[in-house]
Every structure is written in C-alpha cells, then in structure tokens.
C-alpha cells in the first residue's frame, strides 16, 4: 500500500505504524468520568467500507496522519496531518 503523505507524497506503508480508528483523537474531558473513557479506550468502529484511521509515519517525518480509507478496496480517499485536523477543530 502507498499512503499519500500530505507533505511528502506517496510513501510505502512499510514506513508507517498503524493505530486504528481516528476516534482516538477525541479524548474525553478528564472530568467526564470512566464511562466516557471506557468508550474511548475500548469501543472502536471497524467498518467494512470507509474508515477514518490514524497512521504514524514512524520511519519518515514522525507525523501522525488521519487517513480516510475504504477497508474493502484499500482506496485512500483523504489524508491529512492529524495535528492540523485537531487545531482546525474538525475532528
């Protein structure tokens, strides 16, 4: 697989470490209690189809990327720097 890095262009997936569901970007407020954290830690979507997920360019520039990928076809629909998604407030 090739991951089209927003800064560096298409890069081989071997350079990346996979984390999973991008919902991990939305860490609950610490005051919201264990129930909210249980959902955050343990409940992930695993759709057959379009999936927003986190990849880490471990053997590259160490950017965390938010990749939108079709898990059936492996088509990659969108890639953005996770940091920009967070500071843009659109996660």
């Amino acid at each position: 697989m090739l991951i089209p890095h927003p800064l560096l262009g298409p890069r081989d997936a071997q350079e990346f470490t996979y984390l999973g569901d991008a919902a991990l970007l939305n860490r609950p407020d610490p005051a919201s209690g264990t129930a909210a954290f249980c959902d955050y830690v343990y409940l992930r979507d695993n759709p057959a189809g379009t999936h927003r997920e986190l990849w880490y360019h471990e053997y590259g520039d160490r950017s965390w990327l938010l990749v939108t990928r079709d898990t059936l076809s492996h088509e990659i629909l969108d890639v953005r720097l996770a940091r920009e998604v967070k500071t843009g407030g659109t996660a």
Binding site: L24, R27, L54, Y56, S63, W64, A82, R83, K86
Partner: peptide, 18 residues
C-alpha cells in the same frame, strides 16, 4: 524506547497540539 516516543508524539500531535 520506540513505543514511548510514538506515544509522546501522539499526545503532542493528536491530543494536545496547543
């Protein structure tokens, strides 16, 4: 060593980029 750096980068970029 690698895992901790990865986790810290996750915290830096994905949790608290401010």
């Amino acid at each position: 060593a690698g895992l901790v750096l990865r986790t810290m980068e996750f915290a830096r970029q994905c949790l608290w980029p401010d």
